[in-house]
Nucleic acid binder design. Structure first.
Lengths: 110, 110
DNA sequence: GTCTTATATAAGTATATAATTATATAATGA
DNA sequence: TCATTATATAATTATATACTTATATAAGAC
């Protein structure tokens, strides 16, 4: 059970098509920024700025690997259960991720 | 299972402390505008405008009774299940409603 | 009819948000 | 070292949002 305010903050964060999609993607697999750029067909700064908001609120974590920064959902977040029950209502993004894999993820990031 | 965009719209609507609280209240009991004004301690136009957004998106319904307009959650909304699974994570607003009842709802609305 | 109460809407203002473009940083590899 | 790639940040702009104040509408009481 969360506070109303805390919950509203999470909902506001996920109440944006781009961030909700990013969250749904990360719920399937970790991704680096350029993969998200490729899937979402948006500019790199726009994606970075959305990731920043998610990170500032602790919803995602970042891990640096060579020149890439991989983002993942923060399963330790207090609101993770809320996020999961929301994601249960939206289609998973397997297709998008598979499409990316077929193009060769490497080609995208290198 | 909803579309990402549709879900984002709902989350954005509920991603506001006032609207989330109104929704949580209406999940307990129907309310007229002046009751919400009393509970939320906000101006009447502010409450009306939030109710308008909720109504425009079909989340709430209104019923006129004499000079009052009672609002209720629209259980027929496609996203009602999503809304319920979100509300399951926030405290119900029984206390606020009870506090209002003790003051005498009649006194508030007349 | 007029007065009061409940609610809605309009106009204005201040702030927040999302995007773009340009630039900075950081890591890799030649 | 320099060039390239990946990512972040800053500055700007356009739009959206939440609220206030003032006013309109609608219903009931008198």
């Amino acid at each position: 059970m969360y506070h109303i305010e805390e919950t509203a903050t999470i909902l506001k964060l996920l109440g944006d098509k781009t961030r909700l999609t990013i969250t749904a993607i990360l719920n399937e697999t970790d991704c680096c920024v350029c993969e998200l750029v490729d899937i979402l067909q948006m500019s790199q700064p726009a994606i970075s700025q959305h990731l920043r908001k998610l990170k500032d609120n602790g919803l995602v974590k970042e891990t640096k690997k060579a020149q890439w920064v991989f983002y993942s959902l923060n399963k330790q977040h207090v609101c993770y259960p809320l996020i999961q029950s929301i994601l249960a209502h939206v289609p998973n993004q397997r297709e998008e991720i598979d499409r990316l894999a077929q193009k060769g993820i490497r080609m995208v990031c290198e």
